[in-house]
């Protein structure tokens, strides 16, 4: 299971990097979103998968899944949401001001 998910993470990272390297602002933002998905999964894998019950005390099980990666991922999800939202608005304003969403064309834009 862990190996499979790690390979999935690799595929998603490759997709994300490819998107990040493109010219269109939208693709870049999507790339960053996919990258955070991949990293969340990677964090999850690091704690081991399906090794115990839901980390809620009082459930019948004595053996819990690792709670620390879960807490970290929870923080990361929220932060990546904030970053995506900010990037989207930035792209929107850039397009309004510069009339383009192509980074190649945006090079040397005067009001940067």
């Amino acid at each position: 299971m862990e190996t499979l998910i790690t390979i999935l993470v690799g595929v998603l990272v490759a997709v994300a990097v490819y998107l990040l390297l493109s010219r269109s602002v939208i693709r870049i933002i999507l790339g960053s979103a996919v990258l955070s998905h991949a990293i969340h999964l990677l964090l999850m894998v690091m704690g081991g998968l399906k090794k115990g019950g839901v980390p809620l005390i009082g459930e019948e099980t004595e053996n819990f899944a690792d709670a620390l990666p879960q807490a970290l991922i929870l923080t990361a999800i929220v932060i990546s949401f904030a970053v995506t939202a900010f990037l989207l608005v930035l792209a929107y304003r850039t397009y309004q001001e510069a009339g383009s969403d192509d980074l190649q064309e945006l090079r040397g834009f005067k009001n940067e």
Binding site: E2, T6, L12, A14, V17, Y18, L21, S22, M46
Partner: peptide, 21 residues
């Protein structure tokens, strides 16, 4: 170039993840 960088990034992350586990 983009493809090579993307694929090698994916491979490296996978290898790193597997090695750590």
């Amino acid at each position: 170039v983009n493809g090579i960088i993307a694929i090698s990034a994916g491979v490296i992350v996978t290898v790193l993840g597997l090695a750590v586990q």
